[in-house]
Write a protein that binds this DNA or RNA. Structure first.
Lengths: 87, 87
DNA sequence: TAGATATTTAGACAACTATCTAAGTATAGC
DNA sequence: GCTATACTTAGATAGTTGTCTAAATATCTA
């Protein structure tokens, strides 16, 4: 989970929209897909990108996979971000 | 100057290192180049990426081009960043 | 255990990125 | 005006990204 991975993950509008959705509540892949025009495989690609940046995590619930925001990691991120610009 | 452009600009380690250098003081393209192994044309590409994200600005001083951090824009950025994760 | 539902993996592909070399532009100083 | 210095622009290229379709995997339910 490098800074580069994190910024790269946040650089895509689809992925930021996924974060917006998960901010309200955790959701299954299918529920998330309802908000987008792109295919589920494409979304899976974005889930993986966000997971690799440690921004979200997943959990199986029966046939569904539930995605959630990793709020703890986001705090660290804020810190790195501040440091980048602070003199 | 979109959020995507900004995050994309920050996703590259070379560009973050340029920011680190400019944080200490404004510098010419040549001075910045001394800190890297890559060619000046490659650095110019990174300068343009950072300029497009409005993170830096340039100013000519004789034969040299001096680059500086755009601190005002960075404040806005922080704000967008907070909003992205705030419920 | 067969069929339905939910999601991922694999493989292909067009577009974009970061790099290079070679050539061009701008300024300074003689 | 010529030459040197500082930097950018142009064009090529290998690697990465975001998307798709088709196939595979996992779980539930009858």
């Amino acid at each position: 989970m490098t800074l580069s991975e994190t910024f790269k993950a946040l650089a895509d509008p689809t992925r930021r929209e996924i974060i917006e959705l998960l901010k309200k509540r955790s959701r299954s892949a299918g529920e998330i897909a309802e908000h987008f025009q792109i295919t589920l495989p494409s979304l899976t690609y974005h889930f993986n990108t966000l997971k690799q940046a440690n921004l979200i995590s997943q959990e199986r619930a029966g046939q569904q996979i539930i995605y959630s925001l990793n709020l703890s990691v986001i705090e660290e991120l804020m810190d790195s971000y501040f440091k980048l610009f602070k003199k």
